[in-house]
Design a binder for these strands. Sequence first.
DNA 1: GCCAAATTTAATCAAATGATTAAACTACTT
DNA 2: AAGTAGTTTAATCATTTGATTAAATTTGGC
Lengths: 202, 202
Amino acid sequence: MTKQEKPENNLSTEEKFKDAARVVFTKKGYAATKTRDIAEEAGLNLALLNYYFRSKENLFEIVMQEKILLLFSLISPIVNDGSTSLEQKIDGISVRYIDMLLQNPDLPLFVLSEIKNNPERFGKNFQVDNIIMRSHFVKQLAERNKTINPVQLILSFIGMLVFPFIAKPVLQGSGVVTEEIFSKLMDERKQLTARWMKMMLD
Amino acid sequence: MTKQEKPENNLSTEEKFKDAARVVFTKKGYAATKTRDIAEEAGLNLALLNYYFRSKENLFEIVMQEKILLLFSLISPIVNDGSTSLEQKIDGISVRYIDMLLQNPDLPLFVLSEIKNNPERFGKNFQVDNIIMRSHFVKQLAERNKTINPVQLILSFIGMLVFPFIAKPVLQGSGVVTEEIFSKLMDERKQLTARWMKMMLD
DNA sequence: GCCAAATTTAATCAAATGATTAAACTACTT
DNA sequence: AAGTAGTTTAATCATTTGATTAAATTTGGC
């Protein structure tokens, strides 16, 4: 009974499902997504999906885990880097976060709505408190300006970075921007948010 | 055949459904909401819901219409007031928008996700282009600072106002804030966003 | 009190949907 | 070539869900 290892295309099959799930879940949300949609998007059969992942929920969990990681893994090392200045952190976050969002435009709206629609599910998944609120960055903020609550500054910072992507469907739907113009705006925005944030420090 | 007008409690019944629909739709989103949930929340029968509204979609349309109106009706008169200064508009929007959001905390996330999940449905519902992008406010912005794209400023402004409410489930879930602290933060935030926005003008 | 219209209910339908099953097929080992 | 574990498929289930129907109940005018 030599346990047969998965050949090339087996891994590929599982990955096809995950890819499809990423696309469909992110586009339509958990509740509106049918397992058949995912199977079709993957070009595979419905039963096969359950063979690999046991359930819709399971597959969703996997996708969601990835997304949340993506959303936080970028920030953590930057805000907790003890060797950089406040200004350097602001520059770094602005550039890298917008770059990441340009590659994952509907990440924030997807993650935030799923969390809202089902808060119980994400008990300890995000350690905002540990990763961000106790970060080196926050300490530097508090040192620099003792009158302003760091939470306020951070909400503005992340808000300025993330909100355009959340409002993107509205902006496009109402013809304010095209895909191309949006990208240019966001690229330009890296410098703007950094500049604005630095102004807001004092 | 004197057509019997709806007595007191009929109007009340229709309103009960709308109230329930507001609650459930806003909490769970369109796809995750079952018509039975709404009926139960209203303390009424399922068939009655279809008697009044013909369909789930219909009822949703009504609720959504209200929500979008709420989201835009506040801004329009302020940004298009030809008699106020840029600074006055900024103050007015900050205060009144945050007040409105404090009373409707999950309005933004609800509206924005439903639009994203179903952009076709909202063809012309939001005239962001007409109401905001061609407003007196934007003209004043462009006059004041010819180097910065007004869209960038507006995205930051609305982002700073709205984002905390979008991130609220995460903030609460991770124990960064309680309901009470959140309200205080948002109250304090009225002045902060106004101050920051004015700084960003130059 | 009685009638007609409006309202409410319980029962039921048809379609959609997540999941399972049993059989067919593939690829690798010997 | 045969056997075996792993993979894929078509068919089917049971439940959920939006909607309908027909009967019961209530309401207001006479």
